[in-house]
Each structure stands twice: as structure tokens, then as C-alpha cells.
């Protein structure tokens, strides 16, 4: 019984899970808003990758830049049009974002139809520890790590990044030292949804036939599990939690199918939730702090 290949597979998909959750975590940490439309922006990113590849022959690593730009614009509009307008009415924001997610799914259905679609892009593979890993997936996972590191560096070493962390730790404190909190909110919403859409592009490398208007829901749920595990607002914590989730999913699937469970993937998901409960019980602030 060798779980190494399952572990590696889990790390690689986990890197993507970490990336796709950074935006959710950032938006919650800074704006204290649970973005329940999160999965819908992953879906938008996935369709951008699909359309760019199938209709225009643009590979996903190039179309991810386009998705990032579109996500930034969308994130700014979400802030200016929904979150800021509804202000302190937290429940209203939640309902509005839920509606926005449903609306985006329906718009996607009008444009791309209700069927599952996808594409396959191969540029070769490498062998690691006896496991054939597709290069596209490996590069995707490495880029996801690099984007995470870049975000962490921006938050840690630039004036504006430090201001973002200040708002996470104490918004009133940030206000009285001269931080334009409104601008930090707009920036975080734009960047957060930009990264989410970009992550949606990367995700398509792993789901060759899994793009669908309603694919967002499970990713929203998974995103919250990962973000809470990592510590809401913490970049490094979110990424590590993404890796853990990927490993649990992959290794859990293997072990549960060995043990003869009928629904091993459901059991692996169950295991991930058990882990979430344990982390919340033992370390309620999540793995890391911002």
C-alpha cells in the first residue's frame, strides 16, 4: 500500500484549491463579508478558459490574465454596487451576493448552455515517484504557489499591503492612522475576485469535462471550509489549508476505496469536514493569523 502518488496528486490539486480560496479569505478578512457568490466567479473563470481555448486557441495560462482583469473589474463593481451601497446591512449583503451568484449562473447558462463542457490541453508529462504528472497540472500548481507568495509579499512589504493587514486587525485603528479604509475595501474586493476568477481558469486543467453554469456551489462550500481552516484573512494559512484539503481528498479517496466504502469521494469529503471541526475546536482562529 503506497499512498505517495495520492499524496502528490493531493498536493498538486491542493495548490489550486489554495489559490481559488485566497480571494474568499481576503474579502472576508478585510470587509467581513462572506462572499457566497464565490463559486460563481470560479465558474466565470472556467468559462473564460474554455472559450479562449476552444474558440480562440488561447492556452489557459494566457487567458488567466484576461480572467484576472475581468475579475478585478467585477470585484470593483461588486464592492461599489452591492457591498458599499448596502453598507452595514450585513444580512442584505449576504442575500444580494447569493442572488448575484444565481444570476451569474443563469447568465452563463444563456451564453454557454446547460451542458457540461471542457477541453483537454496536453504538453507532455513528467514522472515523479512513479507517478505520471501532466505538465499542465504541475505548472498550474507551481504558478498557484507563486501567485500566493506574490500576494503574501505585497501584503507584508508594501505600504498599501500593510494597510490591508491593518484593516483586517483593527478597522478603526487603521482609520485613525490615516488609512483610506474605503479604498482598501475596494482594492480587496477587486483583487479578491480577480484572483478567484483567475483560479477558475487554473481549475479547468483538472476538470476536463466539469465546466457547467451551476458548478460554483460546491466550490463556495469548499472555499469556506478551506478559508476557515486557514484562518480568515491569512494568505499563507489559506494556501496551506488548500494543500491539506487536497491531500485529504485524494488520500482519503484511496483509503476509503481500499476499505470498500461505496462512496469513497463522499467519505473523503466527510473526513475534510471532521478535520475542520477539529481545527475549530482546538484552534478556533484557524491555522494562521494575518
Amino acid at each position: 500500500m503506497d499512498i505517495t502518488p495520492y499524496f502528490l496528486t493531493g498536493i498538486i490539486i491542493g495548490s489550486i484549491y489554495g489559490l481559488t480560496t485566497l480571494g474568499l479569505s481576503l474579502i472576508f478578512g478585510v470587509l467581513r463579508v462572506a462572499n457566497v457568490a464565490h463559486g460563481a466567479f470560479i465558474m466565470i473563470g472556467a468559462y473564460i478558459a474554455y472559450t479562449a481555448f476552444v474558440a480562440l486557441a488561447i492556452p489557459p495560462f494566457a487567458s488567466s490574465l484576461l480572467a484576472f482583469a475581468i475579475g478585478i473589474a467585477a470585484g470593483y463593481l461588486v464592492y461599489a454596487g452591492v457591498i458599499k451601497r448596502l453598507g452595514k446591512a450585513e444580512l442584505n449583503i449576504l442575500v444580494a451576493l447569493f442572488a448575484l451568484g444565481a444570476l451569474l449562473a443563469e447568465v452563463a447558462r444563456l451564453i454557454w448552455g446547460p451542458d457540461f463542457v471542457g477541453y483537454r490541453w496536453t504538453i507532455g508529462s513528467v514522472e515523479v515517484a512513479g507517478l505520471q504528472i501532466e505538465l499542465t497540472k504541475l505548472i498550474g500548481a507551481i504558478l498557484a504557489l507563486m501567485i500566493t507568495i506574490a500576494l503574501e509579499l505585497v501584503l507584508r512589504w508594501t505600504y498599501f499591503g500593510r494597510a490591508v493587514r491593518a484593516v483586517v486587525q483593527d478597522p478603526v485603528g487603521a482609520m485613525v492612522v490615516g488609512v483610506n479604509v474605503d479604498r482598501v475595501f475596494a482594492f480587496s474586493s477587486a483583487l479578491g475576485i480577480g484572483i478567484t476568477t483567475l483560479g477558475g481558469v487554473f481549475l479547468t486543467l483538472f476538470i476536463p469535462v466539469g465546466i457547467n453554469p451551476y458548478m460554483g456551489g460546491p466550490y463556495t462550500l469548499m472555499g469556506f471550509v478551506i478559508a476557515v481552516m486557514g484562518g480568515l484573512g491569512s494568505v499563507a494559512g489559506t494556501y496551506v489549508a488548500g494543500l491539506l484539503f487536497g491531500v485529504f481528498e485524494s488520500v482519503g479517496f484511496y483509503l476509503f476505496s481500499l476499505a470498500g466504502f461505496a462512496e469513497p469521494s463522499q467519505m473523503a469529503l466527510f473526513l475534510a469536514f471532521v478535520m475542520l471541526l477539529l481545527i475549530l475546536l482546538l484552534r478556533p482562529t484557524g491555522l494562521f493569523r494575518i
Partner: peptide, 18 residues
């Protein structure tokens, strides 16, 4: 209203944000 997860010096640097 300090920034609890930042060091003393980081808090001071934040004070000079403008």
C-alpha cells in the same frame, strides 16, 4: 486600537502612513 498581530515597530510605521 492597536494592530495586535503586528510588531511594535510595524505599528509605529503604520502610524506614519500618510
Amino acid at each position: 486600537r492597536l494592530f495586535p498581530e503586528m510588531t511594535v515597530e510595524e505599528n509605529l510605521l503604520m502610524g506614519a502612513y500618510t
